[in-house]
Design a protein around this nucleic acid. Structure first.
Lengths: 152, 152
DNA sequence: ATTACATGTAACATAAATAGTTACAAATAA
DNA sequence: TTATTTGTAACTATTTATGTTACATGTAAT
């Protein structure tokens, strides 16, 4: 099991939009950077749009950030791309036997534990913004300056 | 996406073994409490055994705890049942375009962020033991005392 | 208006993982 | 030797992620 790569791709897209603010970032262009199909990008951008993180319009080329880079946390992206349902990072086994001591109480016992682990994860994601990611990308690039040809 | 219910079932099994220490807990018996197939239980018990959390022997009926309840954390169980590979709670998108500024740096930028979120989750799981779960189960049962018939 | 082009979506194709099931070999105790 | 249980292989069904083709719809520019 792994949390869908949609999350990673979402971060990629937003970072790209942040760095290429001048350019027209079409789904085809972004797809080349991510190295996938444009339709995959459009679907994810659709989710980011619904979460009001980007602006896109049918018929008009290019997506744009709807917020400052520093106002978008990883948690925003994580929630936007729907990799995990509200309370469901951890799967539960349904219908344990109610005529068993453990069976009838396990769900209630486990729930708060799972919730708090999930919250710990989400808080960690909330502490990082896309701006942080972009800054890190630019810093890495500096450190290998000279060899940076750019196709996109 | 959800983390496999194997994790929840693993917790269920260990709690049951803790509560029914006197009894002989066969896979069939446990399966009734969890409400699933005995083979599913055996597979999970096999994982718990490999992680040295339980003792079982082929031919000998019943599984037993290999440690004190208070020495088994949820993280131990989580790792035992292999719901998540070592560094892979978050899926990455493979092969982003190396001729793009973002493409060639995104992985490195994201990795530590994902790792620390995963660590936050795991630390939360590490703070809880099966003993805590069992205590909670027994406490819940008390609060509805009187109606507690037991089939298992 | 027509054209060119991009977005938005439906529909489908794999592929991988989960969960369950049947069947049976191997181990053990009585 | 017999009955019972664990351990596993093999198979099925279901779900989800990801990618792909195809096309309708929206927009701007000619």
């Amino acid at each position: 099991m792994s949390i869908s790569s949609r999350f990673a791709v979402g971060i990629h897209i937003l970072s790209l939009l942040g760095i290429n603010q001048e350019d027209v970032n079409t789904s085809e262009y972004i797809a080349k950077s991510v190295n996938t199909n444009p339709v995959v990008i459009r679907k994810i951008i659709g989710m980011l749009k619904k979460a009001q993180l980007v602006n896109v319009r049918p018929g008009v080329a290019g997506a744009e950030l709807a917020k400052d880079l520093s106002d978008i946390t990883l948690l925003d992206v994580y929630k936007a791309v729907n990799v995990v349902q509200e309370k469901d990072l951890f799967g539960r086994h349904e219908s344990p036997n109610p005529s068993c001591l453990v069976g009838r109480n396990i769900q209630t016992a486990i729930e708060p534990l799972f919730s708090s682990a999930q919250r710990a994860l989400e808080k960690s994601l909330e502490n990082v913004t896309i701006q942080d990611v972009v800054s890190d990308i630019l810093k890495q690039e500096e450190s290998v300056a000279g060899q940076n040809q750019r196709e996109c």
